[in-house]
């Protein structure tokens, strides 16, 4: 009985303590305004850590990410806007540093490649379908016997037909 109570107490203690573990990576920055604080939170999620490549700088504990957060904070408090700060980082670390790279000759394919492929696909489907239906139409037209003209083909067919009926008569 004593044992169960002891374990319950330990579990309760662990439960109480867990929330404090989750906040390991919060820098203590103060901001001039609520907008700056909001911009800081957004920017640190949009900038990518160059060292640990699949983390944003808000999420990373790498020294370079700490430096970048510090710079983002400093620039915001100096009154720089979002785009200026992103350009500042791109100047130093390249297009890689943002999760939404700017459109330029190097990133053009990245941004528009998928759309170009979709467009190509649609165009080929259109061509394919049109090609098929126009072919059907042409077959259809040929199927209708041309009664008004006495073409050589028409004559041929009549000849064949008559020979066929003649053969049948002969067989009988």
């Amino acid at each position: 009985m004593m044992n169960i109570k002891f374990w319950l107490l330990i579990n309760l203690l662990l439960l109480v303590l867990t929330p404090f573990k989750a906040y390991a990576n919060i820098d203590l920055y103060t901001f001039k305004s609520e907008e700056n604080r909001q911009a800081y939170l957004e920017l640190t999620k949009e900038l990518r850590c160059p060292k640990c490549q699949n983390q944003d700088i808000a999420d990373s504990n790498a020294p370079i990410a700490t430096d970048m957060r510090r710079e983002v904070h400093r620039l915001l408090e100096e009154g720089k806007d979002r785009n200026e700060i992103i350009d500042f980082m791109i100047d130093r670390f390249g297009d890689f540093v943002t999760y939404k790279p700017k459109v330029n000759s190097a990133t053009f394919l990245l941004w528009f490649g998928p759309w170009i492929l979709v467009l190509l696909g649609l165009i080929s489907i259109l061509i394919f379908v049109k090609h098929r239906s126009s072919k059907k139409e042409s077959i259809h037209i040929q199927d209708i016997p041309d009664d008004t003209s006495s073409s050589s083909e028409h004559k041929k067919v009549e000849k064949l037909l008559s020979s066929y009926t003649n053969d049948k008569e002969n067989d009988a």
């Binding site: 490549q53 390249g94 297009d95």
Partner: peptide, 28 residues
């Protein structure tokens, strides 16, 4: 066309094999 696209994509992906993704461009 789909064959060419597939071969093209294959070629692009093939050239990326062995590239070290931790080496970034030099912005400066």
């Amino acid at each position: 066309t789909p064959l060419l696209l597939t071969v093209g994509l294959g070629f692009i992906l093939f050239t990326a094999i062995g590239k070290d993704p931790t080496k970034l461009e030099t912005a400066r």
